[in-house]
């Protein structure tokens, strides 16, 4: 066991990664010397352009990839050996972008049971976990449906339930809403928020949507394999020039409020509304 303080769930220590490991040239590196720690119960968004290293970072979190240099430590377990990696994947689950690529069974509840079944868990316990997981994502009524009949947002929620049924403490989402319509996005995001707020699950959310990142507790900005910002969404999105220079947007509302001189850390419609209502009513 390591000496990490026990509120840390995942720790990156000087992590570098390259897809081309036989050729150790530095220019092939996708991530350079990353140091990060994720705290239990946090909702952390990771943003960055295509090719910035976001998905690689995600896959290092649950030992799908091994770092070339440095260490990834999950709950005190260092990734890199078969035994440790297997253990890490029980702690950290993943949900990918395309809902159709990660559903394996023909009935919703069978799909959710797939993970725990592979862990060799007692059938009665599995039953309980599946029901519980489906309730947490609001899909319990659909437990006997065929997955192909569900909408994209519903399928993603089934995939999330699959991760919860493994009793993972942390779920890494790799652009879970990229293929969904606005309604599906809302459903998945609110399921994610529930996981964090009500069940204390740690969530790492990789996204291209700045409005989604604005709802996180913390935002990490990656550019060309390096962490260039790591702070609250208010602080991160106040750096609009820096973000624009690396090809990222800031939320519309943040931009609007900055133009109006209402500060550069307003993130949501509701916050802007609360700021505007008193100043506007005085005038009428």
């Amino acid at each position: 066991m390591s000496d990490l303080s026990n509120d840390t769930i995942i720790e990156f220590e000087n992590v570098s990664f390259s897809y081309n490991s036989d050729n150790n040239a530095k220019d092939n590196e996708v991530l350079h010397n990353i140091n990060l720690s994720f705290k239990k119960g946090e909702l952390v968004a990771v943003v960055g352009r295509n090719g910035s290293g976001k998905s690689t970072l995600a896959k290092l979190c649950n030992a799908l990839y091994e770092p070339n240099n440095g260490r990834v430590i999950v709950n005190g377990i260092v990734s890199g050996t078969e035994k440790n990696d297997e253990e890490i994947r029980k702690h950290v689950g993943m949900v990918f972008q395309n809902p159709d690529n990660q559903i394996v069974a023909t009935i919703v509840e069978d799909d959710v049971a797939f993970g725990p079944e592979n862990l060799g868990i007692d059938p009665l316990e599995i039953r309980q976990r599946v029901d519980d997981a489906l309730k947490k994502v609001g899909m319990y009524e659909y437990r006997l449906e065929q997955p192909f009949k569900l909408s994209g947002g519903q399928k993603q929620r089934v995939a999330i339930a699959g991760a919860i049924a493994m009793r993972t403490e942390c779920i890494v989402f790799d652009e879970p809403t990229a293929m969904l319509d606005p309604l599906g996005r809302k459903e998945v995001l609110s399921a994610v928020r529930t996981l964090v707020d009500e069940y204390g699950i740690t969530v790492i959310l990789i996204t291209h949507f700045m409005e989604e990142a604005a709802q996180a507790d913390r935002v990490i900005v990656l550019n060309e394999g390096c962490v260039i910002l790591d702070n609250t969404p208010e602080k991160v999105f106040s750096k609009s020039d820096l973000l624009n220079s690396i090809g990222l947007d800031i939320p519309q509302i943040t931009k609007f409020c900055a133009l109006l001189g209402l500060g550069n850390s307003v993130l949501t419609v509701d916050q802007a509304y609360d700021l505007l209502i008193p100043v506007l009513e005085k005038n009428s």
Partner: peptide, 21 residues
């Protein structure tokens, strides 16, 4: 009808509903 109008449009709709012209 559930279309995602831009956030500033949402804000203006909300302000209008509160009586701001």
């Amino acid at each position: 009808i559930g279309l995602d109008v831009p956030d500033v449009t949402k804000l203006f709709l909300k302000l209008k509903a509160a009586g701001v012209d």
